[in-house]
Design a protein around this nucleic acid. Structure first.
Lengths: 212, 212
DNA sequence: CATATCATGTAAAACAATGTTACTATAATT
DNA sequence: AATTATAGTAACATTGTTTTACATGATATG
């Protein structure tokens, strides 16, 4: 019997969760190219991951393939969307409407993939009421009320590093449980709140180590 | 004797290298706040990492602290910069001058932290010759010549996913050995070439898994 | 000055992830 | 019917990572 049926205590490691979006990305590309079936070997070749690992990762959530033939791409894609809960639209609150915040607000990649920026906040009085993308910039004083009213659970922070922690606190107060932080600083959050970081410079610095 | 002297074969794991920029980020913030000394415990509290791990990570590269007192921030900062090779300026080539590429080109965070965008390329003839930030957009046909001439080793890719692999190939041809890929697709590179990814949606999808 | 406290660096142990191998079951192909 | 390809599972080995424990040295305190 598969482990997801026999051992309900088995919680998939977070590192496995982190690979699922990568698998999903590859599947979307394959199906865009008109392909209908793939295999753990092909996926592994594309992604630079061993086929065994891919099969093992997927087996945490069920048996999505067919022995002898591989995985039907549309089916596996659907299943991964279910697991990741991205078979729906998510609304996001964006805090910060400076250069970075505006760029984030205008980035097409979010809406294309099911994430919808539902409100934008900034502390600069000169920006309040102006449009950023399709949305009117709201003052920070309206953050809690708006986020609670819309039931928003995900937020992105694009403010200067020194304000990021305070903004995070306010977001959590308003019920946000997942934060994507573009500010180059680590923030502290209570259990049950998830944080991911986007810091391009940290990525670059990680690579310069290896340059002679 | 410390292991970095006794065992020259000990190559620090990549995951450790990946944490060094995080440590550096935290140290910069502490010194900005006027603090001169810190400890593995304090850093751990700030970053949500155990103090033991921080000490162990740092011990791969030498003994930078003083027993009983901790780490002098300016000294540790300097040492980490040496290890990561970010105690100098790096020139970067940017490929793609669409919405995303323009946003990347205008992002202040790179130049503030030692990364200088030295040239920008795009395949769209209508964009060639126009300015993006401080730089004139060059055609793809000039990529190899320019990158080689300037001795550039780092590039950023901000083109649609379907062109990313081909762009990467050209960059590697031109001597690039580190790529920061903003396109939502995995790319294949030969040994000795390093790739990092920026895919905000993948980060979001990783978090939605945990939202009930 | 003796003692207590604090903090690093390191060795050892514990834990986690990954890769390998072997096997069974199933599907498609020859 | 035999062959080939593939998923899923288990057992194991290997590697990588984190935690624990402690010896050593520095500082502060009484």
């Amino acid at each position: 019997m598969p482990p997801h049926l026999t051992n309900p205590d088995d919680i998939p490691p977070d590192i496995v969760i982190g690979r699922l979006p990568i698998y999903l990305r590859a599947l979307m590309r394959l199906s865009q190219d008109g392909q209908e079936v793939t295999s753990s070997h092909e996926l592994g070749r594309i992604l630079g991951i061993s086929s065994a690992q891919i099969r093992k990762d997927l087996s945490h959530f069920g048996g999505f393939g067919k022995q002898g033939t591989g995985y039907q791409i549309s089916y596996l894609e659907e299943k991964l969307r279910q697991v990741l809960q991205v078979n729906r639209e998510w609304e996001i609150a964006l805090v910060g409407a400076g250069d970075l915040g505006q760029a984030v607000a205008n980035y097409r990649g979010f809406s294309d993939r099911g994430f919808h920026i539902a409100c934008v906040f900034d502390s600069n009085p000169q920006k309040i009421g102006k449009k950023s993308g399709n949305f009117v910039i709201q003052p920070m004083s309206e953050l809690k009320e708006t986020v609670l009213a819309k039931g928003i659970q995900i937020a992105m922070i694009a403010v200067p590093a020194e304000y990021a922690q305070e903004v995070a606190n306010q977001l959590i107060e308003a019920g946000v449980r997942a934060i994507l932080n573009y500010a180059p600083i680590s923030i502290n959050v209570p259990d049950g709140v998830h944080v991911q970081y986007i810091d391009p410079v940290a990525h670059l610095q990680r690579m310069t180590y290896y340059l002679k």
